[in-house]
Amino acid sequence: MIISSYMKNEHRECDTLFAASEEAVAQGEWEVAGEKFLAFSNKTFTHFKKEEESLFPAFEAQTGMIEGPTQVMRYEHDQVRSLIGQMAEALEQKDKDAYLSLAESMMILLQQHNMKEEQMLYAMCDRALPPELKESTLEAMKDMSL
Score class of each variant (00 low, 15 high):
residue 68 G to Q: 14
residue 141 M to N: 03
residue 48 F to C: 02
residue 17 L to C: 00
residue 145 S to L: 05
residue 70 T to Y: 11
residue 102 L to E: 01
residue 63 T to G: 07
residue 140 A to T: 15
residue 52 E to T: 01
residue 61 A to V: 15
residue 38 L to R: 11
residue 145 S to A: 06
residue 30 W to S: 05
residue 53 E to Y: 06
residue 54 S to A: 15
residue 139 E to S: 13
residue 142 K to H: 13
residue 62 Q to T: 15
residue 22 E to G: 08
residue 84 I to A: 01
residue 51 E to S: 14
residue 123 A to Q: 15
residue 101 S to Y: 04
residue 32 V to S: 01
residue 12 R to V: 14
residue 30 W to C: 01
residue 54 S to F: 07
residue 101 S to M: 02
residue 95 D to T: 12
residue 123 A to K: 14
residue 28 G to L: 11
residue 138 L to C: 03
residue 59 F to G: 08
residue 25 V to A: 09
residue 82 S to F: 09
residue 117 E to S: 08
residue 23 E to P: 06
residue 98 A to P: 01
residue 120 M to W: 03
residue 49 K to W: 01
residue 105 S to R: 10
residue 16 T to M: 09
residue 101 S to D: 05
residue 58 A to V: 13
residue 98 A to V: 09
residue 2 I to F: 03
residue 105 S to F: 00
residue 106 M to Q: 10
residue 145 S to Q: 12
residue 58 A to E: 12
residue 23 E to W: 04
residue 86 Q to K: 07
residue 37 F to D: 00
residue 72 V to G: 09
residue 44 T to P: 02
residue 51 E to V: 09
residue 86 Q to E: 09
residue 138 L to F: 07
residue 133 L to E: 05
residue 37 F to Q: 01
residue 30 W to D: 04
residue 20 A to H: 05
residue 100 L to A: 06
residue 71 Q to F: 11
residue 139 E to Q: 15
residue 45 F to M: 07
residue 145 S to R: 05
residue 64 G to V: 12
residue 92 E to F: 08
residue 20 A to W: 05
residue 142 K to T: 13
residue 18 F to T: 07
residue 93 Q to C: 09
residue 41 S to W: 00
residue 99 Y to M: 06
residue 47 H to W: 13
residue 142 K to C: 10
residue 45 F to E: 05
residue 30 W to H: 02
residue 60 E to L: 14
residue 98 A to I: 04
residue 12 R to A: 10
residue 108 I to F: 03
residue 8 K to T: 10
residue 38 L to D: 08
residue 92 E to V: 12
residue 131 P to V: 06
residue 10 E to M: 09
residue 144 M to G: 03
residue 44 T to R: 02
residue 78 D to Y: 02
residue 146 L to K: 08
residue 82 S to Y: 06
residue 14 C to T: 08
residue 60 E to D: 13
residue 76 E to Q: 14
residue 120 M to H: 09
residue 75 Y to E: 12
residue 68 G to N: 12
residue 31 E to P: 02
residue 137 T to H: 05
residue 108 I to G: 02
residue 91 L to F: 06
residue 77 H to N: 11
residue 84 I to N: 01
residue 84 I to S: 03
residue 134 K to I: 03
residue 55 L to W: 02
residue 18 F to Y: 12
residue 120 M to K: 05
residue 61 A to T: 15
residue 137 T to R: 04
residue 11 H to I: 11
residue 136 S to G: 01
residue 136 S to C: 06
residue 64 G to K: 04
residue 81 R to Q: 08
residue 45 F to L: 12
residue 128 A to Q: 12
residue 31 E to D: 10
residue 9 N to S: 07
residue 33 A to Y: 00
residue 51 E to L: 12
residue 84 I to Q: 08
residue 50 K to L: 06
residue 103 A to I: 05
residue 105 S to E: 03
residue 24 A to W: 04
residue 71 Q to M: 15
residue 126 D to E: 15
residue 72 V to D: 10
residue 41 S to K: 08
residue 58 A to K: 07
residue 22 E to A: 13
residue 102 L to V: 00
residue 29 E to F: 01
residue 29 E to K: 09
residue 143 D to I: 10
residue 114 N to W: 12
